[in-house]
Design a protein around this nucleic acid. Structure first.
Lengths: 202, 202
DNA sequence: AGATTTTAGAACCGATCGGTACAGATCTCG
DNA sequence: CGAGATCTGTACCGATCGGTTCTAAAATCT
């Protein structure tokens, strides 16, 4: 039985849901969860509120889906960094990717995972918690990767994988804040370089 | 002529403006500029909207005054750090103070200067810009202090004061994000220690 | 005392918030 | 060709947004 090939019954949707989600991601990235109104979102997406609700659920669902999109797109550098052969290369690629994503031309400055919602009122709390969990997931992936590096002798046995992961994530978060405040790409590349100067020797 | 001693004419205000501002600061710190509604603020301040407008202007003015209050209170560690005798001590005190302020018991986790407004809709843009300028001011103070350190031979001549300042501010911003996400004080103290391992020798 | 100045409280303002109900349009299936 | 299913646009929902108006109360001034 063909699961995907069939044309669905009923009137087909008149817009590209993927493209609309991409637009929504940009708006959330630029204005944050609470700062992005449904009017802002749907106007950027080129659809009406009704279509948005039918296609994505509600504002919170839309935000989560925009975050998934962000993870696969601008934040894909995390996965790429984790696949580097040595811990040092992982760290370097991670910070370089963080700088790149936070200062990407044509995109909002900073990181959706940080500025999407850091402090929020009652209404924005689920979105804030979603982002905190998302950042934590990345941090734990880094930690696991550095544990593996210790096992492989790629990091000295006395290295603390959890601490190194948190250190890197802290610098990346700081880079995102700096970028949101207008810091330029080359300035942040220098910061990343300084941050890696004290990386444990292999 | 006594400028301050006189009792002002008219009905005296029935609340402590300083205490009310302190409460407002906490609310902004916890919920961000856009996430804090006037109802949230005035209820925490224990006054009505009318009294708030008479005493502080409007929401934006209140936010600016809450930031000044934050600078004199929880963020006073910046000034203290800048007065340390050596560049290394300045850097150490700055990061230690950042960790302390971001994980202070009884206060919201994180830093008002970061999570107060990082990304915002149209309405919150002035607040966001105010915070970005505030963070930049701190960064430039650090830079000037490190320039002085180079002049005094306290930092090597090849040290880059601007880069060191931006590096420290980046780490401090990252610490604030980590704290907002639930990181504990001792974890962030270790991060600060790692971040200072490669500080230029005297 | 009486005039003046300021505060406090409640009621109210238009605008906007996130979210829906409904009707018409457009598709597949029989 | 209907019949049933799904999407789209409009109009609307109650609640809340930041901010104001108006009246009464409480103080100092002459």
């Amino acid at each position: 039985m063909d699961v995907a090939g069939k044309t669905p019954i009923g009137r087909p949707r008149g817009f590209d849901a993927d493209a609309a989600l991409e637009r929504a991601m940009i708006v959330f990235w630029e204005q944050g969860y609470e700062g992005a109104s449904l009017a802002d979102l749907t106007s950027a997406m080129g659809i009406t509120k009704t279509s948005m609700y039918a296609a994505f659920g509600n504002k919170e669902d839309l935000f989560r889906k925009a975050l998934e999109r962000y993870e696969e797109g601008p934040a894909a550098y995390v996965e790429r960094a984790l696949r580097q052969p040595t811990a040092r290369e992982v760290a370097t690629a991670f910070l370089a990717g963080s700088v790149g994503a936070s200062t990407r031309p044509g995109c909002p400055a900073g990181c959706l995972g940080v500025q999407g919602s850091l402090a929020a009122g009652e209404a924005g709390r689920p979105a804030r918690d979603t982002l905190a969990a998302w950042r934590d997931k990345g941090r734990l992936h880094l930690r696991d990767r550095f544990r593996q590096a210790v096992d492989e002798g790629d990091l000295p046995p006395e290295a603390d994988p959890g601490l190194l992961a948190r250190y890197l994530m802290t610098v990346a978060n700081g880079i995102a804040v700096q970028a949101a405040g207008g810091a330029e790409r080359d300035e942040l590349e220098q910061v990343a370089e300084v941050a890696l100067r004290n990386w444990p020797p292999t």
